[in-house]
Design a protein around this nucleic acid. Structure first.
Lengths: 304, 304
DNA sequence: TCCATATAGTTGCTTTTAGCAACCAATTGG
DNA sequence: CCAATTGGTTGCTAAAAGCAACTATATGGA
């Protein structure tokens, strides 16, 4: 019972804000209030933005924003130009001094973070980065468009795939640990006998987090076999599955195979739809009892 | 190249505080300033605390704290008693109304967090919890004593173990992916043929995160074999390895084995020290080339 | 076309938040 | 037993931030 995630998050928020010094009101080097710094940040980020946009983004009173902006301008960090179109609005841009100040603040802030993680070794740092990215994604989806990459597997990926298959299929379909064992066997076999000229494991990443995978292995000289295709629930809807499988098909075609087969089960509806869409056809179907449940295994195939 | 962790942390801090609404000055349900809420929180946590302690914890002006406390008392949420010993200091305690208010605030805050994660499924939630816990541990070590538990494996654990072995041994010793394959094979075998009366996989958790594991399998009727023992770098120094292995020894003894063997490599110094400490002796040693490096394999044994 | 309404921004005024400094009262260490 | 320290209170002030009234421009119908 790992407990309630909302409560975890609340506890984390409290600890984290204390640790990261979020509640400190001043940047103690530069004479800027927190709000001034936030406004400056928005201007720096947006490159060119109106006061009202800042008001909306930071949820502040417009009078206060107006004054803050006036102060920043007076100190020479930002400039106001009347926008060509709407002569009420002023576009805010940073001056050279503003940029220099901003990068100084950035540097100082990064230094402070560096101090916070000074005691961590490189392995722990990358663990931290990964964890931050996980939290980031789960908490703020769609904040920015996700960077999708497809790459070859590397150390750790196959184990991760085994782990995720075990967990996901248990959650979604109630399969027992035998399925995880089966995937582990496939992974072990793939690592041991992988022939890069005709076999390959592709990993899809979204912003550095593994979001899915697909593997091609040799069945015989003419036939490639597609195995352990999956997409994380949080990564569905980006067309990742399609991309992974079609990349596998391209690889298989280039490797000289003339057809591709795969084994799946009838309960995996989204997967079946995917294969249908990509031109696979059901060639064989047989009931079996595996992974603690009754299933109908299916073999699908298509020419390359 | 995942880039600079300090910068990641900074970016995260900014996004997170916006998402979690940390910069909002008010609890908008109750008429409490953020500082009042923090003071109330400290009093609720500590059960009985002095104003000066709060001042130190929250790093506030003592005059301000004094006024804040007076206001909280006036509103009937806290009470001040002169402590028996020092008649200057007043111990602050919550009243019944204070507790009720506090739990209402807590509830609301948890609700808000719940809203933040409303779109997440159970798998993602546990992923989030785990990631938060990682960040928590890495950033605020020793804040509170970690809750260590040892439990049997469940779905997903073996895959996780494969993953972590692959990554850790690559990082720490430069072993290649063949090692991950070997662990995957062990995991697959364990799942397939595990006999619970004489075989077992123990998982150590620290605050719900997997921190290490150890597995006992049957070598022959008299001999148990210890396999894939590991402890996460961030979890070292808690005596976890010792606890895992000695739990395995206890299990093996109870299962009727009379001795325990294990295979390791001479480069794994901390592991060797652990086995020595627990009464194992080196019985065999042989050079081999595996996992991309030259190694000396060792078999250790002890009676049970 | 023109006017009611909305929007971007400014300014005067006020409240809230928080710190400083002087102070009182109890405590403690020579 | 008294000087220095500590826990806490209070008066005063400064900064932070919101409210409301205002100007100037823009816009969407009748």
């Amino acid at each position: 019972m790992p407990g309630d995630t909302a409560a975890d998050l609340r506890r984390f928020t409290r600890n984290f804000s204390r640790a990261a010094g979020l509640l400190r009101g001043k940047l103690y080097d530069v004479d800027l209030s927190l709000t001034e710094a936030r406004v400056l940040f928005e201007i720096a980020q947006a490159e060119s933005v109106t006061a009202d946009a800042i008001r909306r983004m930071l949820d502040l009173d417009k009078g206060y924003v107006s004054r803050t902006i006036a102060a920043l301008q007076k100190r020479g960090w930002i400039a106001r130009h009347v926008a060509g179109k709407d002569r009420r609005a002023r576009l805010l841009t940073m001056t050279v001094e503003g940029h220099s100040l901003f990068s100084r603040i950035n540097q100082r802030s990064t230094d402070e973070m560096e101090r916070l993680i000074a005691h961590l070794g490189p392995a722990q740092r990358s663990q931290l980065s990964a964890a931050l990215s996980v939290v980031d994604h789960l908490l703020m989806p769609g904040d920015r468009k996700p960077a999708i990459t497809i790459r070859d597997h590397r150390v750790g990926d196959l184990g991760w795939i085994v782990h995720r298959h075990g967990v996901l299929y248990a959650e979604e379909y109630g399969w027992n640990i035998a399925f995880e064992g089966a995937v582990a066997e496939i992974a072990a076999g793939f690592i041991k006998t992988c022939d890069p000229s005709g076999e390959r494991c592709l990993i899809a990443e979204i912003d550095g987090m593994i979001a899915g995978s697909a593997t091609v292995v040799r069945l015989d000289d003419a036939t490639a076999k597609l195995r352990i295709v999956y997409v994380e629930p949080w990564a569905r809807g980006f067309g990742l599955g399609e991309r992974l499988v079609s990349d596998c098909m391209t690889f298989a075609r280039d490797a000289g195979y003339t057809s591709m087969k795969l084994w799946t089960n009838d309960v995996l509806k989204p997967a079946r739809r995917l294969y249908e869409r990509l031109g696979f056809t059901l060639v064989e179907s047989e009931p079996h009892h595996s992974f603690g449940v009754d299933l109908v295994g299916e073999i699908w195939e298509r020419g390359l």
